[in-house]
Design a protein around this nucleic acid. Structure first.
Length: 300
DNA sequence: TTGTGTTTTATTGCCTCC
DNA sequence: GGAGGCAATAAAACACAA
């Protein structure tokens, strides 16, 4: 079985295979050469190199000097210059080709394996930082979206109260007219199903001038609600799509198709800033079907 | 000075690729 | 099956407050 041994101080670590990043050859005095049968404790030899900062690993057999055998050697950090040099190299390419690794090792007075390890750790750090950045970006996007959603809910409540107010006014007005005429009462479904304007007028007119006036008011009111909703959605939601970067395109497209559900209501469908289903807009805003609380006053 | 948290260097085991 | 990459981890080096 091939063995891979690395050590610091007198610690011997023998692995199941050689994991040197460069092929150990006699031509490379810095490479690790180890026979598969080697089980002893090799030593690590420190030597002076540009200020005595660097050290090499040698086999005990190769070294043959017991003075270094079992001599504890502490782990040392790379110098600022070495780190700077490797940082520059990492910037140009974060992967390390064997030739480049050997070249770097020679220039820095390090083992090729040390260079390889540094690049490996550097890639891990880089990946972690990228993950942190991605997380922050996602969180920021979420916060923006959430704030926008909260604003929409508030706007919706505001509009809803306006509708209530207008509805009460209309009810009072209708009561005043129904006392003196035989006005047909309107069901909630008639008012809220967003019946096409001509149909509403047709249904309500019935040859009676007062009913016709009321029908016009209903249509006018309906249009106002519709317009308000469109303005609201256009200004506070579609606008935001332009501010979000392209990384969330898929999510944004989904959001364009379906607005966030407000209080459980189904959102209207939007495409290219237009509603693909006007009925859904009305139903969404009017809270139908089954939103008795919001428009209970319509039944009378 | 010392305890503690963080960063850096290195090892280990597993995986993929050729 | 060897070479090399990566995740997880160990451990030394370092920073810093008390």
């Amino acid at each position: 079985m091939a063995a891979r041994s690395f050590l610091y101080g007198s610690v011997v670590l023998t692995n199941k295979r050689v994991h040197c990043s460069s092929s150990p050859t006699p031509a490379d005095p810095f490479s690790i050469s180890r026979s598969s049968s080697f089980q002893g404790s090799p030593s690590m030899l420190s030597f002076e190199d540009k200020g005595g900062q660097f050290w090499r690993l040698f086999d005990h057999e190769d070294n043959g000097d017991d003075e270094y055998f079992h001599q504890p050697e502490k782990k040392r950090r790379l110098t600022a210059d070495q780190v700077k040099f490797m940082e520059q190299s990492f910037e140009s390419d974060n992967k390390l080709e064997p030739e480049r690794k050997i070249q770097l090792a020679k220039e820095l007075g390090l083992q090729p394996r040390q260079v390889a390890i540094w690049f490996q750790n550097r890639r891990a750090r880089s990946k972690n930082k990228q993950l942190e950045k991605d997380f922050d970006d996602l969180q920021e996007s979420y916060n923006k979206l959430n704030a926008n959603y909260e604003n929409l809910v508030k706007e919706k409540e505001k509009l809803k109260s306006q509708v209530d107010e207008l509805g009460e006014k209309m009810m009072i007005q209708q009561k005043g007219t129904s006392d003196s005429s035989s006005t047909k009462s309107l069901s909630q479904s008639q008012l809220c199903q967003h019946v096409p304007e001509e149909d509403v007028s047709k249904n309500m007119n019935m040859g009676n001038g007062k009913n016709g006036d009321f029908a016009e008011k209903i249509v006018e009111f309906d249009n106002r609600v519709h317009t308000s909703l469109i303005e609201l959605v256009d200004s506070s939601y579609v606008f935001e799509q332009e501010q979000i970067d392209g990384s969330l395109d898929e999510e944004n497209n989904l959001s364009k198709m379906f607005l966030p559900s407000v209080d459980g209501y189904t959102s209207p469908k939007i495409e290219n800033g237009n509603y693909t289903d006007p009925q859904s807009v009305n139903s969404y805003y009017l809270g139908l079907p089954g939103d008795d609380q919001a428009f209970g006053f319509w039944s009378y």
